[in-house]
Design a protein around this nucleic acid. Structure first.
Lengths: 173, 173
DNA sequence: GAAATATAATTCAGAAATTTACTATCCCGG
DNA sequence: CCGGGATAGTAAATTTCTGAATTATATTTC
């Protein structure tokens, strides 16, 4: 989960400083363009900030971001199981890491593993009742505390952002 | 750098699947709203994808994303030194991690450390000539290979994205 | 239907990141 | 000018993550 912005007292001082630096570097390096670098930095800082905030909330429940995401994905399946590799894909984590995360979740009785009867290479992951409960309790808190920065955008801006980010993500194929 | 999307053969299959899952979860959990969760996931996947691509390019040079970013920040200072804590702030990494990164960079003769004459707690980090060269060589490659997804956006979309992301980042203060 | 190839999950070694604690220095109020 | 508190950098211990095998099962191909 190499994704944290360190919680310094003043973690987001002036992005303008960083922007100036980017301008200067790109002016000096031929073949470089300021905007993609800037966008990359913005995305990085925002994603990092959101992750930090999520972790702050989840710490009270002894969960980390990935474990929580795994639980959410399972809630979304509505009782149907998921395989570890599904989780790896959905979360963007390595499969080895997903195995470890699942070990933790099983140890906390939030998840249970069962062999898949049709394909015996596979393991089916079922959400335990406590896991569902935990998501019910924590997701609204995440929404309120961690995701509050989105409230500073207007509805139009959020829709626009959603559309542009979807298009951008599509470009990774 | 807990920030990688694992390079599976098909790392960005259909985000639509994930979107459907989010819809279902939020329908089931009172006090949750689909859009912020969706935006968070989009940001996460895009930032992770960009990081993976950067690391792919940088691997040839035995660098990782953070080390590279540190070098870029130093180039942006135009010969003036930076302190480790400046780098920590700019990169969003912990100070302890920056110390380690600098150890590596010094070992590779891309960076040199000198005590600050005015404040003896501080260390001044100077870019070595090889470090400058390395940025000159790698930044254009990063631009072409790693940041190419931005080319799928129109100029208007990029500007809009920049503006919205800046506003969003401002909301973290 | 046997051999070759591919896929799923895991294990394990080592790399990378965080947390806590420590040292040295600076700064401010008295 | 000195004592308490802040700040900078690092070190050590721990946790987390990855990457390369490993094992077991499916699937394809001939």
């Amino acid at each position: 989960m190499n994704d944290h912005v360190h919680p310094t007292p003043d973690a987001f001082p002036t992005f303008a400083d960083i922007e100036n630096r980017i301008e200067r570097v790109c002016a000096r390096v031929p073949g470089s363009d300021r905007q993609p670098v800037l966008l990359k930095m913005l995305l990085q800082h925002i994603a990092g900030g959101l992750n930090s905030r999520m972790n702050e909330v989840l710490r009270e429940y002894n969960l980390n971001r990935i474990s929580f995401l795994a639980l959410v994905m399972l809630v979304s399946s509505g009782g149907k199981p998921l395989n570890p590799s599904d989780l790896a894909e959905a979360t963007g984590e390595s499969r080895a890491n997903v195995t470890r995360i699942c070990d933790e979740l099983v140890a906390k009785s939030l998840l249970r593993r069962e062999p898949n009867p049709e394909d015996r290479r596979r393991i089916d992951l079922y959400l335990a009742p406590q896991g569902e409960e935990l998501v019910q309790r924590t997701l609204p808190k995440i929404q309120n505390h961690a995701f509050s920065p989105f409230n500073d955008l207007t509805a139009e801006e959020r829709d626009l952002l959603e559309a542009i980010l979807k298009k951008l993500l599509g470009a990774f194929a």
